[in-house]
């Protein structure tokens, strides 16, 4: 069971990293408009596909 002396600090480290990423996301305005971000995935996929189409055309 002494493995928890290693595993729990590692878990805490991950939690800290997760929190830092969240803070960064808040600061970079990713939570300002949640409606739009839900859509961005649809549009981005389309854009890449178009680019590929262009590549094959060329």
């Amino acid at each position: 069971m002494s493995i928890i002396y290693v595993l729990i600090p590692i878990a805490i480290l991950f939690v800290a990293i997760g929190l830092l990423i969240f803070f960064w996301a808040v600061r970079s305005k990713q939570f300002d408009d949640l409606d739009k971000e839900g859509f961005s995935i649809l549009f981005d996929e389309q854009k890449k596909k178009q680019r590929q189409d262009h590549d094959t055309d060329a």
Binding site: K36, F39, F43
Partner: peptide
């Protein structure tokens, strides 16, 4: 603006 697609 009426929906998220307008923003895009």
């Amino acid at each position: 603006m009426s929906c998220a697609a307008c923003a895009w």
